[in-house]
Design a protein around this nucleic acid. Structure first.
Lengths: 334, 334
DNA sequence: CTGAAAGCGCTAACAC
DNA sequence: GTGTTAGCGCTTTCAG
């Protein structure tokens, strides 16, 4: 049991062939359900394989076939529940379809994103699904080298899966105005990111002329509230606050409460994404539900379709999923 | 740009060798900093490699070397922030040390855990880090086939990294009693899991004879509160509630508040793990801080050490990390 | 219906 | 110092 740990020379096709008294080619045929092998030999081979505990050497197979059945998934930060859910759905769908996935967390750094893409190509992945930090070029995404599916950020020439951010922003504006709100604060996501920009645009476009943006500030998609954001919140001079995502909203609400500004009595707050926790916090969060899980599944579908397509069918896919306004407790009539 | 997507036959050693006018062996030597090659040739080779955009074919290398520089990470549920943080630390540490990682999410199913381990071995990973669903055997963990590091659940013969659960439980008991609490409810984690059992044991052992457990119930490590748990909470007949982890605590608090039972005025609640959100909710959560990130790093260290060790040094490592009581708002004097 | 054999791209003896 | 070469384990064409 406590034997040595170097990869023990595993059972190979050769061993199985020898054991079954056939050639390695035959074994390969049987195991891959290819070619025509008599039922009799078939059984014999299978038995030998099982007895010896044969396991295909994927590296060898990958090398021979030029395909590894591995896909790479690159995301900015797995600690963000949004990405956790996304990763989970990509993982499960991939497993279901017999692909393994290399997960790379870039920690929001362009440099590691760059390196990750390179690294994955070197590793011989068949394709990559990437949720980029922001819209900046995505230089390594040489889609001519291998298929790349981009999540969220629209990138020329690459397959895309995203959600209706603009519509989501509008819905929030309409909802808040229906409650009578007229003076707004905005803690937007980084505007260098399309999806954040679209949310803001949708929100702003949804505002009527009687509504007013009292203050507006960019904020990282994170729970660490910036000093300037705190200063703005403290002013307590708006009746509703639009936040770029749920994490920002979460942080804002916590801060407001600590400063004796009640949510939603004194100020309404909205999020975006609808992470798991949005409905567990208090007050529960009014937000826009993102079809994260579906995004993951679609991304895998698009990628695998691309991997298995013939050249003729090449046409960029662009999948845009619906979002939904989820009204909870953090917003109330003025 | 819109070229075909089959893996374009990549630049190989041979191409570089040809371009540089040397043999492939020389190129290999240069690129792997092995053997002795004159500085002149060295430069020439590097230039050619760069020009042609050479990228090592890892599959071929893996096959030749019998080592893939890939490690497998198996966890029950990446959506649980605890595991997200863990995964992140494993990912980063692995990347830092030039290993890629296959992440597998077993969704809490023994069957997929089993399959995952098998699959990873087949894929040719060098080693596996696994956070098992529970203590049941972990049958596929043939540590004689490749190194396996187990997180959290103590498993015979396998390297282990875990935390001081027992001590954590005790600290909670002491803290609550110091606040004057005497009547307790327990929403423990699944007792089939050692780590959950240890938390409970620690808590119970930390109680003095004047303290009383009014009710005690097992609960999955999740935010979906069970009906029976709700019934218990509703009774409102205890002054403090021990929860198996933060998620349970989160759900319990939300439920209590919905039923007009105030936390901590009417009842104190404690969690375990100290996930990111524990300090963002309201009330902020008193809990036991788990050194998750450190666990991940240690696991990678142990695994890689094992991968690179010579047989002689084999000795099972068992790393137990300290935990820390974090007092926040969800607990108060009676 | 089955087998022999040619590589996939790479590393590392071993020659020169 | 540098090149030749033998495989790693597998798939697949081509003979038989």
């Amino acid at each position: 049991m406590a034997g040595l740990h170097r990869r023990k020379s595993r059972v190979t096709l050769h061993d199985v062939a020898h054991d079954a008294g056939v050639s390695i080619a035959t074994v390969s045929y049987v195991l891959n359900k290819r070619g025509s092998v008599s039922e009799e030999v078939r059984k014999k081979v299978r038995r030998s394989a099982k007895n010896l505990g044969y396991q295909q050497n994927r590296a060898a197979r990958a090398m021979k076939m030029g395909r590894s059945s591995i896909i790479g998934l690159v995301i900015p930060n797995i600690e963000n529940p949004f990405f956790a859910t996304l990763a989970q759905s990509v993982l499960l769908e991939s497993q279901r379809r017999n692909y393994q996935v290399f997960l790379v967390d870039t920690e929001g750094s362009h440099e590691s994103e760059e390196k990750a893409m390179q690294g994955l190509v070197a590793q011989g992945v068949d394709g990559i699904i990437v949720f980029p930090i922001d819209d900046s070029a995505l230089k390594s995404a040489k889609s001519d080298q291998l298929p790349v599916v981009v999540l969220d950020r629209d990138t020329p020439n690459l397959d895309l899966v995203q959600a209706e951010y603009y519509a989501g922003g509008r819905k929030l504006a309409e909802h808040l105005q229906a409650l009578g709100h007229k003076r707004f604060g905005m803690l937007e996501g980084p505007q260098v990111v399309t999806s954040a920009r679209d949310r803001s645009r949708g929100f702003l476009d949804g505002l009527s002329k009687t509504s007013k943006i009292v203050w507006q500030q960019e904020h990282p998609f994170s729970m660490e509230l910036s000093k300037s954001a705190e200063a703005l919140l403290k002013k307590n001079n708006v009746s509703a606050i639009f936040c770029g995502n749920d994490l920002i909203a979460l942080a804002a609400i916590a801060y407001l409460k600590n400063n004796d500004i009640r949510v939603p009595q004194d100020v309404s707050v909205t999020g975006f994404d609808d992470i798991q926790f949005a409905r567990m916090m208090s007050p529960t969060l009014t937000t826009v539900h993102m079809p994260v899980a579906k995004m993951g599944v679609e991304a895998v579908n698009v990628l695998i379709r691309r991997l298995e397509e013939t050249e003729a069918e090449r046409t960029r896919s662009r999948i845009v999923l619906d979002v939904e306004l989820i009204v909870r407790e953090s917003t109330a009539p003025i």
